[in-house]
Design a protein around this nucleic acid. Sequence first.
DNA 1: TGCAAAAGTTAGGCTCTCCTAACTAATGTG
DNA 2: CACATTAGTTAGGAGAGCCTAACTTTTGCA
Lengths: 258, 258
Amino acid sequence: MSARKVARPAERGHSGGGARHGAADGEPLTGSVEDYLKAIYELEEMTGLAAATNAIAERLDIAPPSVSGMLRRLAALELLSYERYKGVSLTASGRRAALRMLRRHRVIEAYLAGELGYPWDRVHAEAERLEHAASDELIDRMAAALGHPAHDPHGAPIPTRDGTLVMVPRQMLAEQAVGSRARVAAVGDEDGELLRYVASLAIKPGTMVTVVARAPFDGPLTVEVAGKGTKAQRTHVVGSTVARAVMVDAPVKRKRST
Amino acid sequence: MSARKVARPAERGHSGGGARHGAADGEPLTGSVEDYLKAIYELEEMTGLAAATNAIAERLDIAPPSVSGMLRRLAALELLSYERYKGVSLTASGRRAALRMLRRHRVIEAYLAGELGYPWDRVHAEAERLEHAASDELIDRMAAALGHPAHDPHGAPIPTRDGTLVMVPRQMLAEQAVGSRARVAAVGDEDGELLRYVASLAIKPGTMVTVVARAPFDGPLTVEVAGKGTKAQRTHVVGSTVARAVMVDAPVKRKRST
DNA sequence: TGCAAAAGTTAGGCTCTCCTAACTAATGTG
DNA sequence: CACATTAGTTAGGAGAGCCTAACTTTTGCA
């Protein structure tokens, strides 16, 4: 009368045989696999190279040998291509899965901030867990409730349902020339403390910042932040970590040595 | 520099030794454990007896031997008391955990229906997954957004944050005397098809129903459902499964043989 | 080019959760 | 009250994920 659920590749380790390799793109992935794919996507994206085992390990807070093992599995699932001792890079189907997770994560972040009053430094942790549990329908309803936003609360672009990610050219605030003025496009999520600090400087997506000075040797940046009332500039000195977490839009140079 | 997360009793099976038995009430439980506790609570509640191994197995769609093993573990965690071959019953701390899950589940259901336009026959499945991933903060924010509702969309009472569950006396529609009139208080969730059917009869929490007739041998009930415009009664014949899924408030007898 | 440091891998374990097969205890009925 | 039925248990395994210890490649640099 009951006929237990057929043992899918499933979460919570079932047994059974089913689902050998293939990557027809439809099988449900475990939360762990989803985390790996997302991490690998982001690493590939930010370095432009194949993702390194140790980098993945550090990002996921997992020991390197565990990563090695998982990479073999993901390669068998044709989610990425793997050559021992070289890094890994996602296949088309792996990238699709990663972008799906990115969308989920960012839609959830946007929803929590927009509809439930979450402060922006706490949406990341919550989304990190919900992204594995939410159905596609829920994600779509959240996106719809917000009017299908293009960015999450930190300014990161939200991939569309069909896996398109609009990449607007951005640069780190740290790279900006002294004297340049630019619009803050995004601030890296993940680090809640940093977000709280940055917010306390009134820096958030949309605010205009001008680099006033930069100390040598990757030293602190002095920036002028435009206040609410168009005027009311505020000057702050920020360290290089912060200057690398803040991304600005394709900058418009204003001054060039007077 | 990294110092990996300390191996808690944690989800995704880590290793390490930590956390022997104790049940200080604080350790995070795995999603599986949460499911067991919720199921056991509901079984105890509906039968008034210790929960039977096979009943738990059937409810969770898991083989009985798996349940036996888990029960031993849960007993070691002091979440329930277990005597071989007899059933199990939750300890205070087990019940607390179960009520917490019940609250989460029902708050999520209420939120999905109330704020995201989910149809009531689909909230259960979504909540079933989200209840393990949501933080307490999220649950509280959802409840607050709804004005701290007392019931979920199916009419089930929502436990308060401190674990209080208001139990209003209810009876199955199936038990109502012919001629009695009562307010529908709740309809069992879980079965989406049944919910869709019941909704098609305009039966939902709040509607008034009158038992017009009952066929013998647990046969179908003929009920009159009050329509929207106070009048506009509609008469339906429903099977015993439906009659047992629909719960009514402490009924007020109206007619008694003329 | 030679070799130590860094990066990555294999080997061997452990937990959690679930399964099937086979056995034992509790129960109800003639 | 014996015994078949039903409920529940132990035994033995499997797979996902993760870990540490020890080994192998790669790579950076003198």
